[in-house]
Write a protein that binds this DNA or RNA. Structure first.
Lengths: 110, 110
DNA sequence: ACTATAGTCAAATAACCGTTGTACTAATCA
DNA sequence: TGATTAGTACAACGGTTATTTGACTATAGT
């Protein structure tokens, strides 16, 4: 049996860099709530799930974080009773250079 | 009554540049078939709907072209019994600079 | 131990989306 | 005129997804 996604399990599922799929990532980004999450994460390095000022139930937010994490857009880390998330900038840039900047409205620097 | 999307009507609906919405565009791109259409269009300036080598029924292709067009990703033009489509590069670049290059895997030149 | 907090899981619902089938319009060619 | 071709319109099916409700785990503070 898989032990993925159980709260007591410290090893939260994250896809490896090589497994990142463009369509999955685009689908993850193609939602207003998730796009806002990504924008907030882009502005502030690491944020606890509850610390976003987004109007949504915590279950719904939990769902959106999961979609983003499963797609490889964000990484999550448990600390105490908080789950901190951050953008997987390096991985995204390595696999799809310029994509994140394009989505965030920041033109690639080179 | 709206006369949009009728075959006899030469004025096919295209959203204006100012109305392009990032989430809609991302959603339009977040599909394997549509992404392939965009890649083909990126390689060859203007292509008739039937001239893509994509494995899909014509109804399905028609649907995908409509999604892309409604989102503002492509523009379509009727000529004879063909409908030629092209990428709205300039509009996309103006509203979301670097996005298309990021999706196509072509790093922005500047 | 009790309480509060952060977040997930699971089930249910509703809406959406991709795909297919049938029918249709318009244009080209014989 | 008739036949073919390119593509759309519409309705239907099946699968996916966003959202909500309720219950649960685990941590932290008292």
């Amino acid at each position: 049996m898989s032990a993925a996604h159980t709260p007591s399990d410290q090893t939260i599922f994250h896809p490896r860099r090589a497994d990142l799929d463009l369509v999955e990532i685009l689908r993850a980004l193609a939602d207003p709530t998730r796009l806002e999450i990504v924008r907030i994460l882009a502005a502030s390095e690491e944020v606890a799930c509850g610390a976003f000022g987004i109007e949504a139930t915590k279950q719904n937010l939990s769902h959106h974080f999961r979609v983003l994490r499963d797609a490889g857009v964000i990484a999550s880390r448990d600390e105490g009773r908080n789950r901190y998330s951050s953008l997987r900038r390096a991985d995204l840039e390595a696999r799809f250079p310029g994509l994140l900047d394009g989505v965030l409205g920041k033109r690639s620097a080179r």
